[in-house]
């Protein structure tokens, strides 16, 4: 059984069909990329997959259970989601608080939690910025913080909506290393991206969304 299974899902909004009867399967340990033109529905598809939006037809199963049967927080504990704009998922004034945020509201901070947060800061090169207020962080730093925060939850799967936008070449290579590392630790990844080279270099499979539907690229 695949980790994610979409069966003939369609999505309509305000009388407009964004996509129709799309089916696909994703394995839990795969690194898959989703590509396609602007406005074709990639972000929408990923939102259907975590249940923020509901398909108008068909069904998506996560780990064998329809997504619609999970509460949002349950999906969140399995799947980490990096928004196209990371600002909307940063809530706390400092990096440390932000990393510990979900622990605080899920049973409380522990010394191990703090150690893990420090480890995350080191891994994502956030130590230099640790005293800057989060809203002043640069785009790249915000993104790394958002990613680090998601990983604090130890998800089994990651969805990344255009993680390379706004990153320079060095940071992009760095992100590539982080992602590879995360993938090797057993976390599956679905990455939405417009960056051809990055996609080719990173992914095991590439899915292309266009007007006709969803295709596998080789």
């Amino acid at each position: 059984m695949a980790y994610y299974e979409a069966n003939k899902i369609s999505y309509e909004i305000r009388g407009r069909t964004i996509f129709k009867e799309i089916s696909f399967q994703l394995e839990q340990k795969e690194f898959v990329s989703l590509v396609g033109a602007n406005g074709i529905g990639k972000t929408t598809l990923s939102k259907l997959m975590i249940g923020i939006q509901k398909p108008s037809g068909g069904e998506i199963r996560l780990d064998g259970v329809p997504v619609s049967e999970y509460a949002l927080f349950e999906v969140g504990r399995k799947v980490g989601y990096l928004f196209q704009n990371p600002s909307c998922q940063i809530f706390c004034p400092t990096i440390m608080e932000e990393l510990l945020f979900s622990l605080r509201f899920q049973g409380g901070e522990t010394p191990e939690g703090r150690d893990r947060a420090v480890e995350m800061m080191r891994r994502f090169s956030l130590l230099d910025a640790q005293n800057s207020p989060t809203h002043c962080l640069s785009q790249g730093e915000k993104q790394r913080l958002a990613l680090a925060t998601i990983l604090m939850n130890q998800p089994e799967y990651l969805m990344l909506d255009e993680p390379t936008t706004g990153l320079d070449q060095v940071r992009k290579t760095e992100l590539g290393h982080y992602l590879q590392e995360i993938h090797q630790s057993g976390v599956g990844i679905l990455m939405i991206s417009h960056d051809q080279d990055f996609v080719k270099q990173m992914s095991q499979r590439i899915l292309r969304l266009d007007d006709g539907g969803l295709y596998e690229e080789d």
Partner: peptide
Amino acid sequence: AFVAMQLRGID
């Protein structure tokens, strides 16, 4: 923001 918060695993 509320959605993002719940996706952090907070019930």
